[in-house]
Amino acid sequence: MPTAENLIPIRLDIENEGQRFKDSFTWNPADPDFEVISFAKRTVKDLKLHPTFIAQISQSIHSQLAEFRSYEGQEMHLKEKIVPLKLDLRVNNTVIRDQFLWDISNLESDPEEFARTLCKDLDIEDPEVGPHIAVYIREQLFEIAIQGVASARESKAGKKGRRGAENFINSKMSNSSLDLVKLFSSKGSVVRKRKDWYLYEPIVDILSNEEVVALDAREERNARLKKKLDEKEDSFQERI
């Protein structure tokens, strides 16, 4: 991870016997693996979930850890790159949308610190919001890091003659990141144009309880529909 602390964003969304467990947090991959199972046990006990959750939680965490480790130690495309990150998440009653630039080559960055400052500046009282923002940022960073690894692989492969693919990937990547030379040359200003300010400004909404219930219901319905759709697709593919 291109941050100071090497933490992995973990997102859990498990449904079992009428109970649904959704959570997100960061996990330190340096911790020993048996911590995962004790964490799962503790969580299930605290939240009074069905015991079958233990296995599912630990399994989900393990798989996400494994995915991360598959990239660990691999060469990454560590060119200086600044990408716009977008926040759009709802934690309990708080909805927050935001956009900002993030230097993914900066190995000292600290999403948790950033999230803390954001919550403090915006006077967000809900203590759960900050960690969620940090996890959200880390997820995006993780994704970008995966892309970086992929592009590094591609460029290696490209030396063996697949130039087309390399160019394709590079052009795709550069679309998402910013043209640093243009932005930070002596002619440009690092002060954003006034009319663009609103784009990079955090927007916070505090929802009422009714709205939250309605939103939850809608999300659940969408999730179910999607699940059904996936199942149909699977069965369709199986039939073929």
């Binding site: 630039l101 993030w102 950033f114 954003r192 955090p202």
Partner: peptide
């Protein structure tokens, strides 16, 4: 003045800005 207020008008890595 808050950092959040400042960063919306400055181009650059938020962590560096911070």
């Amino acid at each position: 003045l808050t950092f959040t207020e400042v960063r919306k008008s400055l181009v650059g890595d938020v962590y560096t800005l911070q």
